[in-house]
Design a protein around this nucleic acid. Sequence first.
DNA 1: TGCGTCAGTCACCAATAGTAAGTGATGTGA
DNA 2: TCACATCACTTACTATTGGTGACTGACGCA
Lengths: 128, 128
Amino acid sequence: MSLDTSQWNPYDRNCPSRRLLDRIGDRWTVLIIGALSDGPHRFKTITERVDGISQKMLTQTLRGLERDGLVKRTVYPVVPPRVEYELTAAGRSLCKPLAALEEWAKEHMSGVLAARETYDATTVGADA
Amino acid sequence: MSLDTSQWNPYDRNCPSRRLLDRIGDRWTVLIIGALSDGPHRFKTITERVDGISQKMLTQTLRGLERDGLVKRTVYPVVPPRVEYELTAAGRSLCKPLAALEEWAKEHMSGVLAARETYDATTVGADA
DNA sequence: TGCGTCAGTCACCAATAGTAAGTGATGTGA
DNA sequence: TCACATCACTTACTATTGGTGACTGACGCA
């Protein structure tokens, strides 16, 4: 496993790491990885856990994650179909940073809400 | 500052924390916060640091960040205009989780690239 | 007089995401 | 026996977002 990270620069639009960052910083990816962090789950379970995700986006995001080697897809040839998704080692290593993001969001929620009210009040005041 | 984070659940689409997570997990936000992490910068400097961002998206993202109280905007009434953007305390607290994400992306880049090749090879093989 | 600077805005088009309906194989109940 | 539900998807269509490039305003400078 290469630990020479100096060759990648996400601030450069042509660097592959930029695209990777786009992907993992994606709204659904954060939630899907979180939903899978406690073990394998079926497609349907994930749609239930991640409120509001469409089947299309779930399929799409899961495919990307699978392609990137972060999620493993297992199909059981039964009817009705049973497909399980599970984080790989690389996927699990992403849990901590994403959980930190989730934590941050929860911790700062009230502060942000307050900031918004202030901002909106002053902005509207400036308009009038 | 409220530390009761139990009331927020980003997995619920109606929870404000979900929108906050969408926002901070946004492709430009990650990069902009990173670009501001070493101190205040002007609009133009940020466009240069964050390769490929359009003025429109920079303005838009910065406005959102300002509204959320993560970035402070200072206008110097000179010609040509001089506007500086700076992280607030809340904004700085976001640096660490986002830097962790950036680090993760750089560390796992080569593994992901390899996984993609494998995936694409097997998928194309299955098509043929 | 006219060009350059900076921090935007605006109008327009392309790409992406969301919605809702359809599919295929099969077990179950009426 | 025959329609219905289940599950994991596709597909077609629409709405929302994002990107592009031109334009603005105030002034210094040649």
